[in-house]
Design a protein around this nucleic acid. Structure first.
Lengths: 163, 163
DNA sequence: CCCGTACCGTTCGGGCCCGAACGAGGTGGG
DNA sequence: CCCACCTCGTTCGGGCCCGAACGGTACGGG
């Protein structure tokens, strides 16, 4: 594992090194975003492209798989997108018959969303391949390191939400 | 620092625990994305909203600040976006007079992009506030932990690109 | 001097993404 | 029974994002 700085990071030190900045924090956040975007692109190209699924649509299927039928606002929150975006994603998935909308009879405002059988088959065949790729991406970390990194990420997540 | 599992993660273990999946890898990747999206939203709302700048536009300004005038394709690569997206971003920033396009006289295909004085003033006033927020987000890590996490993220980045 | 090949930035089409605003449905106090 | 007030999903407008395709420029071999 090379923990060398990236060329971009070296250039930053050259140009900005004299300023009173927190370079440790910068390294964490910028690499967090680089890694996130790269992994997303990797997964979309390698696993999701055959089914013309975006990352977000895939996450939506996965959330519905894990949680079962749920109300639209809860789906948005679980996927990590706004309610307008969720409307669009559900439209796309409904058009492809992977997901179904149902009116809630108790409360006329709510819409309940769930997987169709085809949607369930899709995520059940896709997810193991997806997880195998995740596994390859984290193969150079020990289980202890994995849990440590996950914990640090969770605390950054919490801070970003509260702070 | 609570390193407790999120409710969503507990539910995943309940529902999927019996399947032969790599849950450690899952925890790393899913929290990587949750954190990335949360930080992005946090920064856009807290630092960038006043100037109506998106995260990506901000990164473009930052890259041009650090590297100076550069060719459009290199800008795209450094920001981490495709060339078509880069065209759009540069259009937006040019419209706001933060960035300038210039034809390269040697090679008629190339376009060189650079900050305007207004663009330079903007990023120089914005970045310290941005970095202070990064600093707050990583305050609970020791410098050693920060470098460790950055190194692990760099190696995931590398794997996602090569693998 | 061509012409095939390669690479540039851009355009096009379609999906994702958000904040603001809207209409419909629900709720509680007067 | 109202009628403010809230929350739901959706629509609208505008920006971001990519792969494919296009016109323009460069360059090397025949």
């Amino acid at each position: 594992m090379t923990d060398e700085l990236l060329p971009a990071e070296r250039k930053v030190h050259e140009e900005l090194g004299h300023l009173p900045l927190d370079f440790g924090a910068m390294a964490v956040v910028s690499n967090l975003f680089r890694a996130s975007a790269a992994i997303r692109r990797h997964m979309e190209a390698r696993i999701l492209a055959d089914d013309r699924l975006s990352w977000t649509s895939f996450v939506a299927l996965w959330v519905l798989w894990v949680w079962g039928e749920m109300e639209s606002r809860d789906l948005a929150a679980a996927v990590g997108i706004s309610r307008p975006t969720s409307t669009g994603i559900v439209n796309t998935l409904e058009r492809r018959k992977l997901v179904r909308r149902k009116k809630n009879t108790n409360d006329g405002r709510m819409v309940r969303v769930s997987l169709t059988p085809a949607g369930r088959r899709k995520i059940e065949s896709l997810f193991p391949r997806f997880n195998a790729e995740e596994s390859a991406l984290t193969a150079h970390m020990s289980p202890r390191e994995q849990e440590h990194v996950a914990a640090l990420l969770r605390s950054m997540l919490r801070d970003a939400g509260e702070l």
